[in-house]
Amino acid sequence: MENNKTNFCEEETSELKTGLTPFPEDIFVTEQPWLSNYLLPLISVDLGLLRNDLAGTVVHVLNPTEPAEGIIGEQTTNFHNEFCAENWIALELTPDNKYRFLGNENYFLSAPIHKDDVDEDFTEHIKTIHENYQKVKSKYQLKKQLLPWQDDNPQYFLDRLSGEMWYGNWTNTSPIPPAFEMNIDEEGDDLSNDGISISYKGNEFIYVAEVSGYNYCGSGADSILMFYEPINRIVLFTYDWT
């Protein structure tokens, strides 16, 4: 059966093409307005760049505002579920390309319920990453470049777009949430070449993109990895800390 796959794969995106939109707005469902407190929209990707049959399906790379130290979800295990666990979060993509978080707000350590469990350093980190994000966004609107540091040092919009899943720290930092299955072909000759698969109810995820949180916020994971499962319209994120 024709799957409409393309051979598109790109590394170190420095020039935007049609289908890539930095700093998207209004991407969360109205019933979860609190998501913008915890997840910062970096860039939207029209999946028609990856597969012709997915044109018009638009996913959004997100940078969590936490952790300040450790990994996301590490201190909120009582609020994990089948979709969200340490170092993994999942969202549903609605028909109008908005995100619905498939976990509880209290998964995030900066949620109001945890206010007595965090210190000043954590609170300052959350404030700083929001401020940095807004500064980089404002500079982008003026100069069309990502400038988290010096103005002569623009960062890539994406470190990688499409291609095969690659083996790294993200594969074994924390177990994938129980709703999903990840297989690693440890007998394969090259784990970076199609040696990893992730699925939900038997439906395979495609690897969409990755970028460092530093590029947009001056801090964050070394790699934010985003995957998409087209049948159930689930977007899955994990983070590589090298």
Score class of each variant (00 low, 15 high):
V58I: 15
F83R: 02
W34N: 02
D151M: 10
I234M: 11
F237D: 10
D185M: 04
A90V: 08
K98L: 05
D152A: 12
T13W: 06
Q155C: 13
Q150M: 12
C217T: 07
P154W: 03
N153V: 11
T21M: 14
D152C: 12
T30F: 07
Q75G: 05
A209H: 06
T94M: 04
P41L: 03
F83P: 05
P177E: 04
C217E: 02
E74L: 14
T57H: 08
G70C: 06
A221Y: 09
L146P: 01
P24T: 06
Q141I: 06
N153D: 15
N63K: 11
F79L: 04
C9E: 15
K143C: 07
D185H: 07
L54E: 14
P64H: 05
R160E: 12
E124R: 11
N172I: 09
Y140E: 01
L62M: 03
M165Y: 01
Y107E: 00
L62E: 01
L40G: 05
K143V: 03
T171Y: 02
L146W: 02
I27P: 01
I198G: 08
G73L: 08
T173K: 13
N169L: 10
F227M: 13
F180Q: 06
K201W: 00
T242H: 13
H60W: 06
N87T: 02
N97S: 11
E74H: 12
N87F: 03
W166F: 15
G163A: 04
V29M: 00
N3W: 13
E181P: 00
N63R: 09
E181L: 09
L42Q: 10
V45Y: 07
F8I: 07
M1W: 10
E210R: 15
Y239K: 00
A111R: 00
I72S: 01
F227I: 09
